[in-house]
């Protein structure tokens, strides 16, 4: 077929991947249902935990801007981002390490399609998307509470409906970059289970508002996880645009930084990925 278009339709390939994953998940019905129930239960347990905390306090730190319902907007944003990551990228990153270790990456390298795309989007864990329903319900409920409260009700700016999903995408991109870079390091490390666990440890920091990191220990942590490994901005930036009153002066600088950090993260992960492919040795068959 020389001379023909050498680029596949990426969107069609992606849809076929998602379709195949769904067909596969559906063929193990019980497993699919159990996984959906388990991940949704975990989300509800988390929610219960924070409800407990808010029995004892009205906000996280005086004047931080994170009262009960603002925090629940934050929490629903975490749910959205995590469920996208868990559905689209987590199974692929896990499998990528295995592909490197077992030498099965060979087949991905043979295909006339961008290898990073192929490796990153092959599988989709549909059961993780069940959390979208919980996150969506929580977001709607919290926003209703915020907008309907008697004292200082929240007025949602129309632009917030654009900025919120945009920065969710940025957050997903940052976490994806981190995840794929760590997986790609399997090429040099042989096995990177520890680094993969490390991913869970550091993303734990992204789950809380950045205002809680203060004082002698908190400030350096906040600096590192904002400017070096920018996981703190993943949830914080979109959540601010939705939960707080629209204030460009307050959220703008961090948002601009989030865009720059997203681009830098994606470029860095692309660089790591390509370097990893060059060093790939392929296990014996």
């Amino acid at each position: 077929m020389p001379g023909e278009s050498v680029h596949p339709s990426y969107i069609r390939v992606l849809l076929t991947f998602m379709r195949n994953s769904l067909v596969r998940d559906m063929s193990f019905r019980s497993n699919f249902v159990i996984e959906s129930v388990a991940s949704t239960s975990w989300v509800f347990m988390n929610l219960g935990f924070y409800l407990l905390i808010f029995r004892y306090t009205n906000e996280i730190g005086a004047g931080s801007g994170w009262g009960k319902y603002e925090f629940f907007v934050f929490l629903s944003t975490t749910m959205f981002i995590n469920s996208i990551i868990e559905a689209l990228f987590m199974p692929n990153a896990q499998e990528f390490s295995e592909l490197i270790r077992t030498g099965n990456l060979d087949f991905a390298l043979l295909k006339p399609i961008d290898t990073q795309f192929l490796v990153s989007c092959r599988r989709c864990d549909w059961s993780s998307l069940a959390n979208w329903l919980v996150g969506g319900s929580l977001l709607v409920y919290s926003l209703r509470q915020l907008t309907a409260r008697a004292e200082n009700p929240l007025q949602i700016h129309p632009l917030a409906f654009v900025l919120y999903p945009f920065f969710i995408v940025c957050g997903v991109a940052i976490l994806y970059s981190l995840m794929i870079s760590l997986s790609a390091s399997s090429v040099w490390l042989g096995r990177n289970q520890t680094l993969y666990n490390f991913w869970f440890y550091i993303t734990n920091f992204s789950r809380y508002p950045m205002e809680i990191y203060g004082g002698t220990y908190g400030t350096p942590l906040r600096a590192v996880f904002t400017f070096v490994i920018p996981v703190l901005i993943v949830v914080n930036v979109p959540a601010r645009w939705m939960a707080w009153p629209f204030d460009v002066a307050r959220s703008g600088p961090l948002s601009l930084f989030a865009v720059a950090a997203t681009l830098a993260s994606l470029m860095f992960s692309r660089w790591v990925f390509l370097r990893a492919l060059e060093s790939y040795r392929s296990a014996s068959s």
């Binding site: 077929m1 023909e4 278009s5 680029h7 596949p8 339709s9 069609r12 390939v13 076929t16 991947f17 195949n20 067909v23 295909k111 006339p112 399609i113 192929l118």
Partner: peptide, 11 residues
């Protein structure tokens, strides 16, 4: 299903 995927990838 894998063949269909190949069809997409190889156009």
């Amino acid at each position: 299903e894998s063949f269909r995927l190949h069809q997409q990838i190889y156009r």
